Amino acid sequence: PKDQAKKEIEKALRNGDEEKAKRLAKKYGISDDDWKELKKRVS
């Protein structure tokens, strides 16, 4: 599910692991808009 994916990506971003977050986003098909939203929430 997308919500689970977003949680994992957000966690990776919080850990400062943007490479992992990007890989997860690609793997789960997270859209650019969702990606920006996640980045905003974390920063």
Score class of each variant (00 low, 15 high):
D3P: 07
E18C: 08
K39C: 06
E37K: 07
P1L: 15
A21E: 00
P1Y: 11
K40L: 07
I30M: 13
N15E: 15
K6V: 15
L24F: 02
G16T: 02
G16D: 04
Q4S: 11
G16I: 01
G29H: 08
K39T: 08
K2C: 11
A5F: 11
Y28D: 02
L13N: 00
D33G: 07
E18F: 11
D33P: 04
V42F: 09
R14S: 05
D32Y: 13
S31E: 05
G29K: 08
K6L: 15
G16V: 01
K6T: 10
K36Q: 15
D32F: 12
K39Q: 13
K7N: 11
K26I: 14
A5S: 05
E8G: 03
D33I: 09
A5W: 14
K39G: 03
V42M: 08
E37I: 04
L38W: 02
Q4M: 12
K22T: 06
G16A: 04
P1D: 15
D34G: 03
S43G: 12
R14W: 06
K7I: 13
K11A: 15
E8L: 11
V42T: 08
E18P: 05
K7S: 12
A21G: 03
L13V: 02
D17V: 01
L38N: 01
V42K: 02
Q4D: 12
V42N: 06
E10F: 07
G16K: 05
Q4L: 13
P1F: 13
L13W: 02
K40T: 11
A12W: 06
A25V: 05
P1S: 14
D3C: 05
A25E: 01
K40Y: 06
K39A: 08
V42G: 03
L24W: 02
D17N: 09
D3R: 09
S43Q: 14
K20W: 11
D17A: 04
Y28A: 12
E8D: 08
D3S: 10
D32G: 06
R23W: 08
A25H: 02
E10Y: 08
I9A: 02
R23G: 08
E10R: 04
E37H: 04
N15Y: 07
G16H: 07
K36Y: 13
N15F: 06
K36V: 12
G16L: 05
W35N: 01
D32I: 09
A5K: 07
N15S: 13
I9H: 00
I9Y: 01
P1N: 15
V42R: 02
L38S: 02
D32S: 07
K40R: 12
A12K: 02
K40I: 08
E19V: 09
D34R: 02
L13A: 01
K36D: 15
K20V: 09
A21D: 00
N15H: 11
Q4G: 10
L38I: 15
E37F: 04
P1M: 14
G29I: 03
D3A: 13
E18R: 05
R41M: 14
Q4I: 12
P1V: 15
L13T: 00
K26W: 04
S43W: 07
D33F: 07
I30T: 02
A25Q: 05
S43H: 13
E10I: 15
G29S: 07
E19D: 11
Q4H: 12
E18W: 12
A25P: 00
G29F: 05
L13Y: 02
K39V: 15
S43K: 12
R41E: 08
I30Y: 07
K11N: 14
D17Q: 09
S31P: 05
D32K: 05
A5Q: 13
E19A: 11
K39N: 08
K2E: 11
Y28I: 07
D33V: 09
R23K: 13
A21Q: 00
G16E: 03
E8S: 05
K11S: 11
K6P: 03
L38E: 02
N15V: 10
N15Q: 13
A5D: 06
K36A: 12
Q4V: 11
K20Q: 13
D32T: 06
S31V: 03
K11H: 14
A12L: 13
R14P: 00
V42S: 07
D34V: 08
Y28S: 06
L13Q: 01
Q4E: 13
S43R: 10
L24R: 01
I30D: 01
W35M: 13
D33H: 10
G16N: 07
R14N: 04
K27D: 15
E18I: 13
D32L: 08
I30L: 14
D33W: 06
E19P: 07
A5R: 08
A12H: 09
E37D: 10
R41L: 14
K2A: 11
K40G: 08
E10K: 04
L24K: 01
E19I: 08
E18Q: 07
K22D: 04
N15K: 10
N15I: 09
K2I: 14
K40W: 07
K7T: 10
I9Q: 00
K27I: 14
K11L: 13
I9M: 03
L24G: 00
A25N: 01
E10N: 03
K20A: 14
N15C: 11
K22I: 13
S31F: 02
R23I: 12
K6H: 12
S43I: 12
K11I: 14
R23C: 10
K11C: 06
G16Q: 04
R41S: 11
R41D: 06
K22Q: 10
E10D: 03
K40N: 14
K26Y: 06
E37Q: 07
G16W: 03
K39L: 15
E18S: 06
I30N: 00
I30V: 08
K7D: 11
E10P: 00
D32W: 14
K40M: 08
I9E: 00
D34W: 08
D34H: 03
K20N: 09
Q4Y: 11
K20E: 15
E18T: 10
R14H: 06
E10H: 04
I9N: 00
L38P: 01
R41H: 10
L13R: 00
P1R: 12
R41K: 15
R23L: 13
D3Y: 11
D32M: 09
N15W: 06
